[in-house]
Design a protein around this nucleic acid. Structure first.
Length: 450
RNA sequence: GGCGAUGUGGCCGAGUGGCUGAGGCAAGGGCCUGCAAAGCCCUCCACCUGGGUUCGAUUCCCAGCAUCGCCUCCA
């Protein structure tokens, strides 16, 4: 039984599935107006790990993750750079998926674009107006939050309390709204802005509408799980939910939110890593698996600081796992059932990847010891560790392709050792190491890998 | 002002009312090795402060301090 913290009820509870064996997940994807940053990386990695684990458990996962390709920020950038807005969204989306590939994040099963669903949104807004839960003003169409009985559920605040805060912020459309918490479903366009026709005037959809329409369309009412970063909980998810409730539709059954990437020690980090807030820079400088490793060792709801120390520790930990994979590459066996059962138990407990990762390291250590001792438990442990890595989306480096000249040097090294010509052996090893090879000299011969 | 989170060893980061204080990184010692590397073994025993509850609290409660997030841009 997979148990997961539900942000709506603030408790860990079973993730109930509408259809046994199948799970439908909606994940709020990026607004494509700039390069992906560390926060995007965390969210996508967390939900990639969730997805892989659920699939590893035997569930059929449908993961819908949208691309917001129409938004004020996109328009602003297009105006600023005097470029067509589609050029920006296409470019950013392609950069996004390249980054995801580097991170080994599987592509969602569905990637709907907001611009593909404008007609749907217009129909939905019409329905909301028909139900008298939305109204037209001078600058757009708004949802009346007072028509939603439990508005504030996700924020865990009453409408009044929500309004008490906010201080001196400027509220969009404040002058026209019936209630200051009402939010835009449709924004009338100014001349030159991208626009779509609607019965109320040309314009573009508000941010919160696309996800309601797309999730309900693709996953259906009462779908299993809605995910996203903690920062989307309010107002974005609250407002998605408000629209569904106003329509009288059942929305997500369970809500999951990941914690933030915090930038404490910001100056230390930027000094050594450069502008590391950018995900691309991080992956440029370090093994992209290192970020996944850092996140595996942190609970998904905790804040995580991505600093040089953290990343370095993850890189070292990965080196140990890689060397384990290399030395056990030829080991074949059935996975140790007790290890896998323990793995499931940990992961089923609110996706406890830190505990599961600890198990992985323990298993690797035991496997190494068993293999050194020639113990029969070795292969089962090795295979269990491999399965855990697969469920984590962690690809270990086994033997790399070795060029002929390198292989020849390794052979010469062994020959020199056999002849007790240690000076030559040491010189060859130093040469290989200088060329960036990891040299491991064992009784059964020398192996090299990157 | 409202809602919420966090404060753990040299660093990162889990977790628990007592029983042997996860795991990773780093450091030191040992085994192995021609020497290394890799691997294995051992060591380094912490929980912000002050009260309270309790036979016993790092873990529960209260207060305080500190840091942080959200309260209509944000993964």
């Amino acid at each position: 039984m997979f148990r997961l913290y539900d942000s709506a009820t603030a408790e860990v509870r079973e993730l109930r599935l509408r259809k046994p064996g199948e799970v439908g997940i909606y994940l709020c994807g990026p607004t494509v107006y700039g390069p992906p940053h560390l926060g995007h990386g965390r969210a996508t990695l967390v939900y990639d790990i969730l997805r892989r684990y659920l699939e590893w458990s035997g569930l059929k996962v449908r993961l819908v993750s949208n691309i917001t390709d129409i938004d004020d920020k996109i328009i602003d950038r297009a105006n600023r750079e005097s470029r067509p807005w589609q050029e920006i969204t296409h470019k950013c989306e392609s950069v996004w998926f390249q980054a995801m590939e580097k991170l080994n994040v599987q592509r969602p099963t569905d990637v709907p674009h907001a611009t593909e669903y404008v007609d749907h949104m217009v129909r939905m807004i019409g329905d909301l107006i028909g139900l008298d839960r939305a109204y037209v003003t001078e600058d757009g169409v708004y949802l009346s939050v007072q028509s939603v009985a439990d508005y504030g559920l996700l924020a865990n605040q009453s409408l009044d309390d929500l309004l008490a805060g906010g201080g001196d912020r400027e509220v969009f459309g404040a002058g026209n709204k019936k209630h200051s918490a009402d939010f835009a479903l449709w924004k009338f366009s100014k001349p030159g802005e991208p626009s779509w026709p609607s019965p109320w005037g040309d314009g573009r959809p508000g941010w919160h509408s696309e996800c309601v329409v797309m999730s309900l369309e693709l996953l259906g009412e009462g779908f299993d799980l809605h995910c996203g970063g903690m920062d989307l909980k309010f107002p974005h998810h609250e407002n998605e939910r408000a629209q569904a409730v106003a329509l009288g539709k059942e929305f997500a059954n369970h809500w999951m939110h990941n914690g933030f990437v915090v930038d404490a020690e910001g100056e230390k980090m930027s000094k050594s890593l450069g502008n590391v807030a950018n995900l691309l820079d991080l992956m440029d400088k370090y093994d992209p698996r290192a970020y996944r490793m850092v996140l595996l060792q942190t609970h998904y709801r905790s804040p995580v600081r991505v600093g040089q120390d953290n990343i370095d520790a993850a890189v070292s930990a990965l080196a140990g796992l890689d060397s384990f994979a290399a030395r056990t590459a030829s080991v074949v066996g059935d996975a140790d059932g007790r290890v896998l059962a323990s793995f499931r138990e940990r992961m089923d407990d609110d996706l406890d990847t830190p505990a599961a990762t600890a198990l992985l390291f323990d298993t690797v250590r035991q496997a190494n010891a068993a293999i050194d001792a020639g113990d029969a438990s070795g292969p089962g442990l090795v295979q269990a560790a491999r399965e855990i890595c697969a469920a984590f989306g962690l690809e270990l480096k086994q033997a790399s392709d070795v060029p002929a000249d390198v292989a020849a040097k390794a052979a010469a090294l062994d020959a020199a050792r056999a002849a007790k010509d240690f000076a030559t052996a040491d010189a060859l090893r130093a040469e290989l190491q200088a060329a960036g090879w990891m040299v491991e000299t064992t009784k059964s011969g020398t192996s090299v890998r990157r």
